[in-house]
Design a protein around this nucleic acid. Structure first.
Length: 428
RNA sequence: GGAGGGGUGACGGAGCGGCCGAACGUGCCGGUCUUGAAAACCGGAGAUGGGGUAACCCAUCCGCGAGUUCAAAUCUCGCCCCCUCCGCCA
């Protein structure tokens, strides 16, 4: 979200730049409320000024043992007017903030303009798509045949869009988590975090899930807690309402967490298998940088996510999301898509975004530049994050790409140390 | 869950209802001194919002929110968080 002042002064510019992205923003209300806020603020401050002066006068009179009743009565009346004006100001600010929080981020100039996913732009394609002599099976069949995935029992104990992994399947999931975390912490310079898997309303607002997307979240019944839809939320909010020292930037964190999503609008999509679940595991990468280095950081971070796929020998491509397909909070997003042989298409396995100062403004995450003498003024950091990677979907890609004619699945060499040396998963 | 204690600036820690954005110490920045550094001494420094081309002016901020009062860091109430003890518990 924008500073209310910046918003007032640049409303037309913001509106024009957002184009279609700003369609459901109540622009007229915002304009009216912005002006109103300024007027009422000035009024309140004028009153307070008079009150302060009057109170000082009362103090002076009393010290001088002079009668102060008249001044006190006048100040009493002024106090009532202030109360009214402040009440009006609070209402205006509340309404304005609520609307302003629903304005999406401005896309970066390098983002291709487009209406929907069909206008995303592929920028590179790596790895070799495997050839199969007979049609490759979908991962749920591969997993079922091996006895490592059990969707029937998942449905029994929880419901649709849940999974149960057992035996070598569970171990493979765990191996992936550990492998990813180890890579990011020892090779890419991230600090590992285990955050809460539930967060409060302020955190959800800080990263942009609220107020607009409450229906996508699982919420506790008796407490105002939400299950995290991604580790981005707790990890970015680590530094909410903080002023970071410029020389500690960039800060890079990685976190494994389960993720919980309602998937409210996706009935009928990806109903089988592990692709779209209410609960899935993900290893996340989060970075805080200075504004001048955030796009450099986006490339870096995307590269870190890609490196996992490269080491697993999984074929993938990277696309730039066009303006119409980007999320609410992002300024620029790269999606990494892995090849799924059973679907004969690339599917998202990671989404890496630069949010610029969008989240930092909402969550008030600033830094104080260091180096120059006078550069003590604070500025908002830029925040970034990306999946590194979605664990369940990585497991899907392994089951599908490395399935063998005999029904077994070959384990990528880098994971074998994490699997007790196991080279392939066979029916037990 | 029960009983008690506490939340003040980067940190530690004061603060009779008025002259308190807040003593003092540490840390930080600049300067003097020094070949350099340390020490010592001098000086400076917060955030948010409103106005102004600017210098600058104004308002707000002592966990959060209400209230009492001409006036609240200071009094009252509610909430949140932290600590100690008891209970329960992985």
């Amino acid at each position: 979200m924008y500073d209310l002042k910046y918003l007032r002064e640049n409303l037309d510019h913001i509106r024009t730049s957002l184009g279609r992205r700003g369609n459901d923003v109540p622009w007229t209300d915002i304009q009216k409320l912005s002006e109103e806020r300024r007027a009422v603020t000035t009024q309140v401050e004028q009153f307070r000024y008079e009150l302060n002066k009057g109170s000082e006068e009362v103090a002076r009179l009393r010290r001088a043992k002079e009668p102060a009743e008249e001044a006190m009565v006048a100040m009493k009346q002024l106090g009532d007017r202030i109360k009214d004006a402040e009440g009006a100001l609070r209402k205006v600010e509340e309404a304005l903030t609520n609307s302003a929080l629903r304005i999406p981020n401005l896309p970066h100039a390098s983002v291709p303009v487009g209406a929907d996913a069909s206008e995303n732009v592929e920028i590179r394609r790596l790895g070799t798509v495997p050839a199969f002599s007979s049609p490759p099976k979908p991962h749920w069949e591969v997993g079922d045949n091996l006895g490592i995935l059990d969707f029937d029992r998942a449905a029994k104990i929880a419901g649709a869009r849940f999974s149960v992994m057992t035996g070598a399947g569970a171990r493979l999931e765990r191996a992936l988590i550990n492998y990813m975390l180890d890579q990011h912490t020892t090779q890419h310079g991230y600090r590992e975090v285990i955050p809460p898997f539930m967060v409060n309303r302020s955190s959800m607002t800080g990263t942009g899930q609220l107020p607009k997307f409450e229906e996508d979240l699982f919420r506790m019944k008796d407490e105002d807690y939400f299950l995290i839809p991604t580790a981005e939320v707790p990890v970015t909010n680590l530094h909410r309402e903080e002023i970071l020292s410029g020389d500690c930037l960039p800060l890079r964190y990685t976190a494994y967490t389960p993720c919980f999503r309602r998937e409210a609008g996706s009935y009928g999509k990806d109903t089988r298998g592990l692709i779209r679940l209410h609960q899935f595991n993900k290893v996340e990468l989060v970075a805080f940088t200075t504004p001048d280095r955030s796009y450099e950081e986006l490339e870096r971070l995307t590269g870190h996510a890609e490196s996992i796929l490269q080491r697993l020998n999984l074929p993938y491509r990277v696309i730039t999301l066009c303006t119409g397909d980007m999320g609410f909070s992002a300024a620029k997003t790269y999606d990494i898509e892995v090849w799924l042989p059973s679907q004969q298409q690339y599917r998202e396995i990671s989404s890496c975004s630069n949010f610029e100062s969008f989240q930092a403004r909402r969550a008030s995450i600033k830094y104080r530049p260091t180096g120059g003498k006078k550069e003590t003024k604070t500025d908002f950091v830029h925040t970034l994050n990306g999946s590194g990677l979605a664990v369940g979907r990585t497991l899907v890609a392994i089951l599908e790409n490395f399935q063998q004619p005999d029904g077994s699945v070959e384990i990528p060499p880098v994971l074998r140390p994490y699997m007790g040396g196991l080279e392939r998963i066979e029916n037990e």
